[in-house]
Structure formats: C-alpha cells, structure tokens
C-alpha cells in the first residue's frame, strides 16, 4: 500500500527579499495505485510540494506520509523524475538506467536484468550503448523515466517530465506513462501545466493557486479507463477541460498581476 497523505503542508523559503510561502495548507491524498495530476501556474509551488513528498525538502509544518509512514528523508520506495534534464552524459543509456540500482548496491546481474526490463518498458531497446548526447530530448526523458522505474518504487513522482518536448512526443509519451501505470500497482503524482495532458492521464486533477500555493480545486476525471486521442473531442472531456481551465484562469490572472506588481 502506497497512499500519499498530505496533512496541512506549509513550506516557507527564506530569500534575500523576505519570506516566501511556496506551499500553504495542503491537505490531500493520493490513494494507493492512483494517478493524480497537479496543475498550476509556474512558480506556484508544484515542484516544492513534490520535493516535500520525496523527502528532498522538509515542510515548514504539516505531515507527509507515504504508505502510512512519515516521510523525513528520501527513501527507496519513492522514485522521482525531475523537471530538469538529469541524465548523466558520461554514462550510456544502460549505465544511466542502472545508476540508481548501482547506488543501492544491487548485484551486477540483477542490475542488468532490471535495467533491460525498464529500457524495454520505455521503448529504448537498441539504444543501450548510446550516450545521452546522441539522443533526442524525448529519448533522454525516457532514460530518466526508465532509471526511476528500474527501482520499481511504489510511488512515482513526475515533475513536468515532458515540458521540454514537442506536442506529438508529449502525447505519445503520456500514453506510454499511463500504459505503464495501468500495468503496475504504482501510485503516481504527475505535475504538468498542460490541462489536456492532466485530464487525459489521470483519475483526479488538483489545481494549485499562486502564492501561497494551495489546492483550490480537485476534479475527478470520470472518463473511461481506455483513453485514446479521440477522447479529447468528447463532450465529457471538454466539460472537464473547461472546469480546470476556469479554475486555473482566475489563478493565472491573479498570479500574473502579483508578478507584475512585484517587478
């Protein structure tokens, strides 16, 4: 069981220009095996919330628990796919995917076996010996995904993994992620600023506000389990899209005004 439980999370940062409240009063839950997307304007605290769940950042107050256990530092059960480019350029695809396993002290044979499985899963078979510099951005992001999946974590946190990619690649990789999730028991929290992507992939969408970052809307996505590209033209999808859009729009405007007055 890998439920993510957030209880009144608040995160403050001390900056030269004063205290910034990045996340405030977030009380939510991702059920075990669930897929939740988090959308919100940039700078609203999505990455910060993810960092708190992964144990990379301590919340100023409030509690995080994964699988009923309080998170105080990074653990093997939680895998993260970062927003930034994070493949290691001096390692081949195979070696990149084995990285986390190697650090964990998994024996060599098993490293290779699990890496091969993950490489196959993300569709990179045949590129094991390539270096990241020889791959496209989309393929590098898949390497990062495979590196996380190879650990077989109960919880996968993805921070705008496809933000830098073109639309076609995004849609394709999104479908792949959903496919992988459906075949596993993993709990997924997926950060994106693309509303369609959020709806298409997940069971629930959380909308986050700008400064302080709160969850201002939670929308259940009651679309059929099997989703293909045609679903985006369905009335149900459009309704969901409008709901998320209007929640977000209010926020984006407010956030934009705040940023404007700030600078």
């Amino acid at each position: 069981m890998s439920t993510i439980q957030l209880d009144d999370i608040r995160v403050e940062f001390d900056t030269p220009s004063g205290k910034v409240v990045a996340v405030n009063g977030v009380t939510q839950q991702v059920p075990s095996g669930g897929f939740v997307s988090l959308v919100g304007p940039s700078g609203c605290g999505k990455s910060t919330l993810l960092a708190v769940i992964s144990g990379l950042t301590r919340a100023t107050s409030g509690q995080v628990a994964v699988g009923g256990k309080a998170v105080t530092r990074p653990g093997r059960g939680i895998g993260v796919v970062f927003q930034e480019e994070s493949t290691l350029p001096w390692r081949t695809v195979q070696e990149n995917v084995q990285f986390a396993l190697q650090i964990a002290g998994v024996d060599k044979g098993e490293q290779v076996e699990r890496a091969n499985w993950a490489i196959d899963l993300v569709g990179l078979k045949g590129f094991e010996k390539s270096y990241p510099s020889m791959l496209s951005g989309g393929m590098r992001q898949r390497v990062a995904l495979a590196r996380t999946l190879a650990l077989e974590p109960g919880v996968v946190l993805m921070d705008e993994p496809f933000a830098a990619l073109d639309q076609q690649t995004r849609i394709f990789l999104g479908a792949e992620v959903r496919d992988i999730w459906q075949r596993s028991q993993q709990t997924v929290l997926f950060v994106t600023h693309d509303i369609s992507e959020a709806i298409l992939l997940s069971q629930q969408v959380w909308v986050m506000s700008y400064r302080p970052g709160r969850i201002i809307d939670v929308i259940d996505v009651d679309l059929p389990e099997h989703r293909d590209a045609s679903i985006v033209s369905s009335p149900a999808f459009n309704q969901l899209h409008n709901r998320v859009w209007s929640s977000l729009q209010e926020e984006s405007k407010r956030g934009f005004r705040q940023q404007e007055t700030r600078t």
Binding site: P74, G79, F82, E84, S86, W90, F99
Partner: peptide
Amino acid sequence: VPAVYWKLGRSVQASRVQMLLHIILPTIR
C-alpha cells in the same frame, strides 16, 4: 555541478563517497 545532480544523488540515497565517485568526479572530469 548542476543542482539536479545533487537532487538525483540524494533521492537515490547516495553516500558521500558514492556522490564523489559517481557524480562529482565524473561531472568535473
């Protein structure tokens, strides 16, 4: 050394020595 490498190292619970051998030294090669 890019901040994301430090995050990566911490998220997979790399020890100091592992951090040095597998992240820092290769990065500054």
